[in-house]
């Protein structure tokens, strides 16, 4: 366990440094600096991967079956997704957001109690569990990236509308880059969330004999799903761009947080994470 802690500490430090490098890059425009930031973030991701593998090996399950693992995997998903798509989207400034978020989540993870001896309850040992939790958590990572872009959009849009032209405005990405990036992230994450909900239902049928039981987590997952479905619908079919579509994204993020974390803090459904 000490090894995992050490690896996560290294990860945290690397994400933090990469975040600072991305932030400086935003204002300096040095290409070499952004290469360096990718390198450091990539190293962080490697350390993170090693920590997750080590953790999974200790528990002899997928690493994301408790809160410690799920949060960790969530942060890992953000960085991995960002590094995977960044080249295509050319959205360097978001690197700051991603790395700082990932560092913050990793810092929280490090504060959580962890006990490798706790084994999964039998109901959670199921063929669907891996796909269910993995795809759900990964979809949250993608939605958070979309949120990062929509936050940038909101800022940029506000500043342009109110005609406050300053250094921050100048260094934010153009509106259509942010819009496109958020859309891409949602098109990636939405199918994953759908898959998570379906495999969850199948798993519930296997374990408890009912597909859907309006557990708070299920209800909130459905709400989240509906919000992003609405976003995709109005964007593709109605051609909504800009503020209104962006508002849906911001709402969607709140719903994601409630689904992922909030439900567990507030209720005692069967989805409550074990420690």
């Amino acid at each position: 366990m000490n090894q995992i802690t050490a690896l996560l500490q290294v990860t945290l430090a690397l994400y933090f440094v990469a975040g600072i490098m991305f932030a400086v890059r935003m204002f300096s425009g040095s290409r070499r600096l952004s290469m360096g930031a990718y390198g450091v973030a990539g190293l962080g991701l490697l350390a993170h991967t090693a920590a997750l593998m080590e953790y999974g090996f200790h528990r002899q399950s997928m690493p994301f079956t408790n809160l410690f693992g799920a949060l960790s995997f969530f942060a890992w998903g953000m960085v991995a997704l960002y590094l995977a798509v960044e080249r295509r989207c050319k959205i360097v400034s978001l690197g700051t957001f991603v790395c700082v978020m990932a560092a913050a989540v990793t810092a929280c993870v490090l504060m959580l109690p962890r006990d490798v001896s706790v084994r999964l309850i039998p109901a959670l040992q199921n063929k669907w569990s891996t796909v269910h939790i993995g795809s759900a958590v990964l979809s949250y990572s993608g939605f958070v990236l979309a949120f990062g872009a929509s936050l940038g959009y909101w800022l940029q849009e506000r500043m342009l509308k109110t005609k406050r032209i300053n250094a921050i405005q100048k260094h934010l990405p153009p509106l259509d880059v942010l819009d496109r990036f958020a859309y891409r992230m949602v098109t990636l994450s939405f199918p994953m969330l759908t898959l998570g909900i379906i495999t969850g239902a199948l798993w519930a049928q296997d374990a408890w004999g009912s597909y859907w039981s309006w557990d708070p987590k299920e209800t909130w997952a459905l709400i989240t799903w509906l919000i992003y479905a609405a976003y995709l619908h109005v964007r593709v079919m109605q051609g909504w761009r800009g503020k209104r579509a962006n508002r849906l994204l911001l709402t969607g993020f709140v719903s994601v947080i409630v689904t992922f974390i909030g439900v567990n803090a507030l209720s005692h459904g069967m989805h409550k994470y074990n420690w």
Partner: peptide, 12 residues
């Protein structure tokens, strides 16, 4: 040039 710079904040 300000106009062009602002356009660059809207369009990629």
């Amino acid at each position: 040039s300000v106009a062009v710079q602002l356009a660059g904040s809207i369009f990629d």
